[in-house]
Design a protein around this nucleic acid. Structure first.
Lengths: 102, 102
DNA sequence: TTGACATATTGATATTTTTCGATATGATTA
DNA sequence: TAATCATATCGAAAAATATCAATATGTCAA
């Protein structure tokens, strides 16, 4: 788990779009292809999902012939914390689950 | 100031090395070339610095014929916060200056 | 089984990014 | 002013990444 893999994984317009669609939502690959509105085709979406998967940024649930993806928000938060620790050590962050305080 | 420019700016091994060297320290371009130990040459370092500059991630101070660079830690912290807000909204972060609490 | 559908993989091409040598710019000193 | 040094920019080549069409794999239902 390093900052380089994390940043490379998310440093792409289409992947960030995919991530937005997967935020708090489970979607299949074809759902995503549709949401992206013809911008890219199915193999390309699969390719991007794989990169996100390898970086640990998505949860995956297989259901029949479908694979559902959703964002791993905890991991994203951790990686961002790591970035701050590495490149902004004079700042300190506390990451708090909203659930824990409300 | 968007998440895409930020992530693209930092998603490169050499640039992350440069950022590490510039963390809490002011260095000239040639200082950096040396610190990188022959990995890349001066025009390449200048190129990477420009990308960091365009993303607002460095402070620059001209001193005679030298240009000194250092990391803009506050900006980095803000961008990471933006990432969390965008891609991990179920987590909430508080970013606190160490100076303010010690 | 077979057929149909969802997703992954492959291999080739296209695009983007990085890198370097050469050179330009800008500042300082002789 | 000329010479020197630090850094930036340019243009071409190299490397890395993204994209797509074709096809393989894997799952379900008939």
């Amino acid at each position: 788990m390093d900052t380089l893999q994390f940043t490379k994984a998310i440093a792409h317009e289409t992947r960030q779009e995919i991530m937005s669609h997967l935020c708090c939502v489970w979607l299949s690959v074809n759902d995503l292809v549709e949401k992206l509105g013809g911008k890219v085709n199915q193999p390309t979406v699969s390719h991007h999902l794989k990169i996100l998967e390898e970086a640990g940024l998505v949860h995956i649930r297989q259901e029949g012939k479908y694979r559902f993806y959703t964002l791993n928000q905890e991991r994203i938060t951790l990686c961002c914390g790591m970035l701050i620790q590495t490149f902004a050590p004079d700042y300190q962050q506390a990451v708090i689950r909203v659930d824990d305080i409300e």
